[in-house]
Design a protein around this nucleic acid. Structure first.
Lengths: 147, 147
DNA sequence: ATACTAAGTGGGAAAAGGTGGGAAAATTTA
DNA sequence: TAAATTTTCCCACCTTTTCCCACTTAGTAT
């Protein structure tokens, strides 16, 4: 399971170390895509296979017939990239994606169960403040659903 | 069952001894996460497996499509860590979590049935005062719901 | 009272993990 | 085709973490 939060440097060659603890589970190649809430998603190849299957087969197999679906799939697939880790576990973040979330020289790398998220440092901090305010409400609301 | 309250030192390497009485039940590895009410939760791996399953299985498998779910999962998984006890029963508290509840050089470690909680000393004392005042009302409220 | 044990605290040395940079390879451009 | 720029691969450094050993304090028994 991918869990935990790390702040790593993006060097002048656009390289970022993926946290050592994630590497075994992520494998040698990963898929990086635009994520929701102004972050990037990283999936294992296996997880990506599931996700992309789910995204296409929502109701009909002909997902391109639904306008919303078309838009969302363009968003996710259109700028997704398969990226290989170098010999010591670093990846290159494609420029489109880097610019999208305004990454500078630091990035926060977060494990969220089955996926990894990449965040702009400031955006992540704001997000964390939000969690703390909302945690009780979210817990109550999710607690209610599952029980 | 995990019960009792202990005050232990946090040394300059962020290490804390888990109370001897908890060690057998906790095992060699534990999961530490942000908790509700400004404390930290410690789960056994087994207990964590249950908790994380509950958190992920919303309705669809693509839990990242739901905004509340994303937030809460970032809150819980994003700052969780799997931590191994050293040879004499100490754990390292990750900086993010230590800062979150403003731990200094002492921590209160509390057994609460299936989990252990870590508290800032002052916060715990306030909390205790609160219990004493509220105990009757809480008892009524819980008694009413369950019976 | 002293010695012994059990549990918690502290610190130094070795290893791990993250960062940076140079040279080789590849690609682009003139 | 050659020069220039970008990308890739590999090696080296350095900080942080981990591991191990020793000390301290409190409780207990002889």
């Amino acid at each position: 399971m991918l869990i935990g939060e790390y702040t790593h440097t993006i060097d002048d060659k656009n390289r970022v170390s993926l946290p050592f603890k994630f590497r075994k589970e992520l494998g040698k190649k990963i898929i990086i895509t635009p994520g929701l809430d102004q972050c990037l998603f990283i999936f294992t190849l296996k997880e990506w296979a599931k996700v992309s299957k789910k995204l296409s087969n929502s109701e009909s197999d002909l997902s391109f017939l639904k306008s919303d679906q078309r838009s969302f799939n363009r968003f996710m697939f259109g700028r997704a990239a398969e990226v290989e880790l170098d010999s010591i576990g670093r990846i290159l973040i494609p420029d489109v994606l880097k610019d999208r979330i305004k990454l500078k020289d630091k990035a926060v790398i977060v494990g969220v169960q089955d996926r990894v998220e990449i965040w702009n440092v400031d955006a992540w901090e704001k997000c964390e403040v939000g969690f703390e305010k909302e945690a009780d409400r979210l817990a109550e609301s999710l607690g209610g659903k599952n029980s």
